[in-house]
Structure formats: C-alpha cells, structure tokens
C-alpha cells in the first residue's frame, strides 16, 4: 500500500461563531448535516436557547462600538469581508454545491454573487443616510435634520429555501443589517448550516469586531422563538421562517415579537420561489433603522 493511500483525512469540526470566538454548543451536542442526497457531510453544533442568549449578550455588547464607527469605516470592513471570501472561493463553492445540490459551475456563480453582494452593501454604508435622512423644510428659523440610526440587535432567521439561499441568501440578510450599524444573531439554516458556519471564519479574519455577527446552528424551532421573545433583541428578520405551524412558524414568531415591540421583516409570500440572485434593492437596508430628528437654531 502506498503512503498516500494510508493517509487519514482530517475532518473539520464546525463550531458556532459567538462574540468573535468559536465555541462548541453549550449543550455539547451536534447533529448530522447531509447533502441533498442524504449523504453525510459533517457534524454541526446543536445550538440551544442558552447559546442564543449568550449570542444576544455578545451582540448587545458590540452595538456601541460598531454603531459608533464611521459609515466610511464600516464600508471598508464590509469590503474586507468580500476580499477574504474571494480567497476562500473554492471551499465555499464546494459547500454551496453540497448544500443546495448544484453543480460546481452554478455553485461558483452563487459564491461570486455573494462576494459581489458584500461589495454592494459596502458601498451603501455611507450613502444610506442620504436616502433615509436629510434636511427637512420647516417654517421657522431652524435647521431640521433627520438622520437614520441603527435599531440595535437584529435577530435573523437565515433563509432556508430559494435559489442560492445557503450563502448568497445569508449574505443578503446579514450584510444589510450590519451595514447600517446593527449587530445580528443569526439562526443558520437548519438543514444547510455549513456555509454559514464557514462564513464565521471569514468574518473573524476580516476586521469585523467580535459580536457584530453571531452564527448559531441548530433547530430553528428552538433558536428563532428565543430570539423573537428575547427582550433585548430589537428587530427580527424572518426570511427563513418557513414552518407552517409550531413555535418556529412566522405568525407565532411575529406574535411574540410584538410583545416587545420589535421591528419585523416578514418572509416572502412563497419562500421557496425566492431567487436570491435578483437585485436586492434597499428594502432590507432600510428596515432596521430608527430616524433621529434634531432641531437646530439657524443663528443670525
């Protein structure tokens, strides 16, 4: 037997991404992730309610620093994410192909689109104030200025269906939230969490401060309701809340989010028909903003 044939492959231990670190689940448990043909791919950590709570703490702690950076600086950081992602294109191509059951070529195109999406949102960071704010005309000797400010901690239920959901879809919901200065806790797609968990490694090496993005894999029916009911989460993106009933259903999540007056972005009418490669528009970018208006005397 030749030496190369005897080599045992080194498997990767996928871990959560919380507060800039890569912890195992507090439960110590994992679950099996398969490709679309039920072939085993890897074990992913089974994140729990407590992991989610810890992630919200980390996200809250990161709000002050991240929302306090200049918009220009945030744009640079987001562009840096694109650079890092570009360098690991092969790995993500393989993971997206396995997650969505696509050929290598189509998967590579989706990864390229995800990289471009980071660049697109990187450009928006210092322009969003111009479309969401501005000087208001008032009848008096005052300047009246409205500026958009980040909402705070955003809970994201990552997309679980639609063309390109596993990486491009994830980027399309995470990037707009953090571009404006929010921090996020993401419930990764339950059946296909590997691109999301690997994205954590990209974020950790690309100047994104720890806690700005937190990624939890596990049962959406555990994680999403925890985010929806958590009193320290300010907004909820339900892109991947596709369950028709049970605690993970969009209506149930929206109901418990209402108890604490969260902003909610509802899932698409038919989530499986969403094409994530389509131009995203500014809808999500403008969803997690609060308008601050100041009156300022005009002087002499």
């Amino acid at each position: 037997m030749s030496e190369t044939a005897m080599r045992i492959e080194v498997f990767k231990t996928y871990k959560l991404y919380v507060g800039g670190k890569f912890p195992r689940s507090e439960s110590g448990r994992v679950y099996e992730v398969t490709d679309t043909k039920d072939q085993w791919l890897a074990n992913a950590p089974l994140g729990t309610r407590k992991d989610t709570r810890d992630a919200v703490l980390a996200a809250r702690a990161a709000v002050k620093g991240w929302s306090g950076t200049t918009a220009y600086n945030r744009g640079q950081v987001l562009y840096r994410v694109a650079e890092m992602l570009q360098g690991r294109r092969e790995q993500f191509t393989a993971e997206v192909a396995a997650a969505e059951g696509l050929g290598a070529k189509k998967a590579a195109a989706l990864v390229d689109a995800a990289i471009d999406r980071w660049v697109w949102y990187a450009g928006w960071t210092d322009k969003v104030a111009q479309i969401a704010g501005g000087a208001n005309p008032v009848a008096g000797p005052f300047f009246n200025l409205s500026t958009p400010e980040p909402t705070g901690v955003v809970g994201v239920v990552a997309p679980r269906t639609g063309h390109g959901f596993s990486l491009l879809g994830l980027v399309s919901v995470v990037a707009p939230a953090i571009a404006t200065g929010n921090t996020v806790v993401v419930a990764a797609a339950e059946q296909a969490p590997l691109p999301a968990l690997s994205l954590g490694e990209v974020l950790a090496t690309s100047d994104v401060p720890g806690g700005v993005v937190n990624l939890i894999s596990g049962r959406t029916a555990d994680i999403a309701p925890t985010l929806a009911s958590h009193q320290d989460v300010n907004a909820l993106d339900l892109a991947g809340a596709i369950d028709l009933e049970g605690p993970g259903a969009a209506a149930a999540l929206e109901a418990s989010a209402a108890d604490t007056l969260k902003r909610v972005v509802r899932p698409a009418a038919d989530p499986s028909a969403v094409d994530w490669t389509a131009s995203p528009g500014t809808g999500r970018l403008l969803s997690f903003l609060e308008t601050k208006t100041v009156w300022h005397p005009m002087g002499i």
Binding site: R53, V56, R60, T226, S229, H230, Q231, D232, V233, S256, D259, T260
Partner: peptide, 14 residues
C-alpha cells in the same frame, strides 16, 4: 427573576 416569571429572556432596557 423576570425570565423565570415570563419565560422570556430580559434585557438591560427593563
């Protein structure tokens, strides 16, 4: 204490 009473995690806003 609020978490035990309501079942939801509380936050510093409360």
């Amino acid at each position: 204490r609020q978490k035990l009473r309501t079942g939801r995690y509380s936050g510093p806003d409360y």
